[in-house]
Amino acid sequence: MTQPNPSASMVDTAYEMIRRRILDNVWPPGHRALEQEVALALGMSRTPVREALVRLENDGLVEVVPRHGVRVLPVSPTDMREIYEILTALECMAAEIVARRKPSDAELQPLIQATADMDQALAEDNLNAWAAADERFHAALIELSGNRQLAATVWNYWDRAHRARMFSLRLRPKPVNSTQEHTALVDRLRDGDAAGAAQVNREHRERASRELLVIFEQFKLAQM
């Protein structure tokens, strides 16, 4: 039996801890730290931290500067526009794939539950819970497509989109339209309406993209 690799486990732990700090803007765009400082903050040795930082650099979240540590990369308006265009196209494709299969209510339950959780979070004015449920909805849609290559491409951009969304969460209008749009998408998926599902999802994503880009313009942000 293959024994677990402790060092690999430490790298995974370091990766998740650093990634979470970046996504939650504990380490905001432009944040710099020496490798030793990161290791001390995590209570780890430098070896797993170094490997974790290389992975995060491949994810597009940080820049590793030899002898100067690490810098959290910003996301510019151009970055976000391009990322949303990619995510919109891929999610619409996922919606078409799922709709053509005419999924059962059991298959759609993760999307239905996430939408209900979004409604509940809004009623409680809990934007963090709303954002978590919203992400579960979109992740479940991607997974339901069953297309591994499509999913892998989406996950490649997921973290950067998440970071910008969380940064702007309380600067945007209250997301009262999202639950209705999600419900409409679930209805199209259930009916096997591939074109309709793609259209609803496209309008939903394009609205969210416009709202985010307005934040950049309104607050004169060159990056976030």
Rank of each mutant, 00 (worst) to 15 (best):
K102F: 12
R207M: 07
S209G: 07
D193P: 05
Q149M: 11
L56S: 12
R20T: 11
V49H: 09
E85L: 11
R188W: 00
A152V: 04
A106D: 14
P6F: 02
E16S: 11
R163Q: 13
A89K: 14
E181I: 03
V62P: 10
V62D: 06
N156P: 00
M224H: 11
F219N: 10
D125L: 12
E82N: 12
K174I: 13
R190F: 01
A116C: 12
P77I: 00
D134V: 02
L23C: 00
L221N: 03
G30T: 15
A14Y: 03
T183W: 05
L111W: 05
A195I: 07
D134Q: 11
D159L: 05
E206H: 04
P103W: 03
G196F: 06
A89W: 04
V214H: 08
A184M: 05
N147Y: 07
G60P: 02
A131H: 15
R32F: 07
R100Y: 05
R101I: 02
A129V: 06
S76A: 05
A41G: 05
Q3C: 01
S145R: 10
R160E: 00
M10I: 10
D159F: 09
F219P: 00
Q180R: 09
R136W: 07
N5T: 14
V62S: 06
W158E: 07
I83S: 04
V176Y: 07
T153L: 14
A194K: 05
P175F: 04
I86Y: 01
A94H: 01
D187F: 01
N147K: 10
L73Q: 09
T88A: 12
V154N: 10
N156M: 11
A52P: 04
A39I: 03
N58R: 14
P74T: 02
A116I: 08
S45K: 15
R67V: 07
M17K: 13
A132L: 10
Y15A: 10
V65S: 06
A123D: 14
Y15T: 14
P66W: 09
H68S: 14
A195N: 02
P28W: 00
V62L: 06
E91S: 04
